[in-house]
Simulated assay, not measured.
Amino acid sequence: MSIRHSLLAMLQDRPRYGYQLKNEFEDRTGASWPLNIGQVYTTLDRLERDGLVRKEGADGEGHVVYRITAEGRTEVSGWFTSPVSRAVPSRNELAIKLALGLTVPGVDVGAIIQAQRGVSIKALQDYTRARRETAAQARPADTARLLVLDSLIFQTEAEVRWLDLCEARLMQLANPPR
Rank of each mutant, 00 (worst) to 15 (best):
residue 112 I to G: 02
residue 58 A to Y: 04
residue 83 P to V: 11
residue 121 I to L: 14
residue 89 P to F: 01
residue 51 G to H: 01
residue 69 T to W: 10
residue 87 A to L: 10
residue 116 Q to P: 04
residue 45 D to G: 12
residue 111 A to L: 09
residue 56 E to D: 13
residue 44 L to A: 05
residue 40 V to A: 09
residue 62 G to V: 01
residue 55 K to N: 06
residue 88 V to H: 04
residue 89 P to K: 03
residue 82 S to A: 15
residue 40 V to G: 08
residue 71 E to Y: 09
residue 56 E to T: 12
residue 100 L to S: 01
residue 84 V to N: 06
residue 101 G to S: 00
residue 114 Q to L: 14
residue 64 V to W: 07
residue 102 L to F: 02
residue 119 V to D: 15
residue 86 R to F: 05
residue 99 A to D: 08
residue 52 L to T: 00
residue 116 Q to M: 05
residue 72 G to W: 00
residue 68 I to H: 06
residue 58 A to D: 06
residue 120 S to P: 05
residue 65 V to G: 01
residue 110 G to Y: 05
residue 94 L to W: 10
residue 58 A to T: 13
residue 117 R to H: 08
residue 46 R to S: 03
residue 97 K to T: 11
residue 117 R to D: 08
residue 105 P to D: 13
residue 114 Q to T: 13
residue 82 S to C: 12
residue 54 R to T: 07
residue 91 R to P: 07
residue 75 E to N: 05
residue 109 V to T: 10
residue 87 A to G: 02
residue 119 V to N: 13
residue 74 T to D: 12
residue 93 E to H: 12
residue 46 R to F: 07
residue 54 R to S: 06
residue 65 V to Q: 04
residue 70 A to D: 14
residue 57 G to F: 05
residue 43 T to M: 12
residue 47 L to F: 06
residue 71 E to M: 08
residue 82 S to N: 12
residue 113 I to V: 15
residue 46 R to A: 03
residue 61 E to L: 14
residue 84 V to C: 03
residue 115 A to K: 15
residue 100 L to Q: 03
residue 108 D to M: 02
residue 92 N to P: 02
residue 47 L to Y: 04
residue 58 A to F: 03
residue 43 T to Q: 08
residue 68 I to K: 09
residue 101 G to E: 01
residue 92 N to G: 08
residue 100 L to D: 00
residue 108 D to N: 14
residue 108 D to W: 02
residue 85 S to V: 07
residue 95 A to P: 00
residue 83 P to D: 11
residue 85 S to C: 08
residue 104 V to E: 12
residue 49 R to L: 09
residue 47 L to Q: 05
